[in-house]
């Protein structure tokens, strides 16, 4: 796998306020990375520096050659152009030859679901349509690196679903870095997570790596009744919550014999036994709170 983006010591300071502390990360080709963090964590500032629109105070950004694609959080268009005219112009400005630009623009608009409104003026577009047009201008020239700032945050659940599907299709052929504060999205489409808090990269890794780090060594044994749970708790150390008993086993890969023997010997009727996994939302809260 080749490296598409390498960031070293990237810093941004406005007046005397450091908005982004030295950041280090790399993006490998054809992976998607979610940049997660609460509002004001420096996500947009980081993306703006990667696009080249904002000059970093310090640090180096290395991008594999080829134009990038960028979707701002609130993309603004010329209302007097049609969707096709705008996408075609974007394609040409990114270096596509005149002959293919129009065809590519048309294909891309159909891909994002704007095939029916190619010739409609952008002035008449809804928020969701503009977001999809924003994606089409970002991908029409097939960039190696796609930067998306909150691509679905402003959309309703249906629009969000549609845009997520479009992005998932893109995952195979391009490297995506997108910021979001909606964690379900990140959980759904990500190879790498970057947690940003107060301009600092406080956590990074693949979803399962991060999960492992935050996993609690808790097992849940669920019974069919609260009575049974209480009975089990008298045999085995654990905390009863309703029909379930929470058991803490510190080993990373614990031997469960003791637990199952206990269940077996006393003929408990078990509904399920599972290891408690932290949701991304819980991890997020922990990362944010961990001052």
């Amino acid at each position: 796998m080749t490296i598409v983006l390498e960031v070293k010591g990237l810093t941004k300071q406005f007046a005397d306020k450091v908005v982004v502390h030295p950041l280090e990360f790399t993006l490998k080709s054809n992976t998607s990375t979610a940049l997660i963090g609460p509002n004001g964590a420096g996500k947009t500032t980081t993306l703006s520096m990667l696009t080249g629109l904002l000059k970093p105070t310090a640090g180096a950004i290395q991008i594999a050659k080829g134009d990038i694609g960028f979707l701002p959080q609130y993309p603004q268009f010329y209302p007097w152009l049609s969707a096709l005219e705008f996408t075609e112009m974007a394609a040409k400005l990114s270096g596509l030859p005149t002959k293919t630009a129009k065809l590519e623009a048309q294909k891309t608009l159909e891909f994002v679901g704007l095939g029916d409104v190619l010739h409609k003026k952008i002035a008449t577009f809804s928020g969701g349509m503009k977001q999809r047009l924003g994606i089409s201008q970002a991908i029409v020239h097939k960039p190696k690196l796609l930067l998306l700032d909150e691509p679905v945050s402003a959309l309703d659940p249906i629009g969000r679903r549609e845009v997520m599907n479009v992005l998932k299709d893109l995952q195979q052929e391009t490297t995506i870095l997108y910021s979001t504060h909606i964690l379900n999205d990140a959980e759904e489409m990500t190879d790498q997570l970057l947690f940003l808090r107060d301009g600092q990269l406080v956590e990074q890794g693949t979803l399962s790596e991060v999960r492992q780090r935050f996993d609690e060594p808790n097992y849940i044994v669920e019974f069919y009744s609260a009575k049974e749970a209480q009975l089990f708790a008298s045999h085995f150390i654990g905390e009863v919550r309703g029909c379930s008993v929470y058991i803490t086993i510190q080993d990373e890969r614990p031997n469960m014999n003791e637990l199952f023997e206990c269940l077996n010997n006393n003929s408990f009727q078990v509904r399920k036994v599972e290891r408690q996994t932290a949701s991304l939302e819980e991890i997020f809260m922990k990362v944010v709170d961990r001052a």
Binding site: G52, L53, D67, I68, F70, P72, Y74, P75, Q76, L93
Partner: peptide
């Protein structure tokens, strides 16, 4: 108004 953003981001 931000309309320049999508142009400036291209080379």
């Amino acid at each position: 108004n931000g309309t320049a953003t999508l142009l400036y981001v291209r080379s």
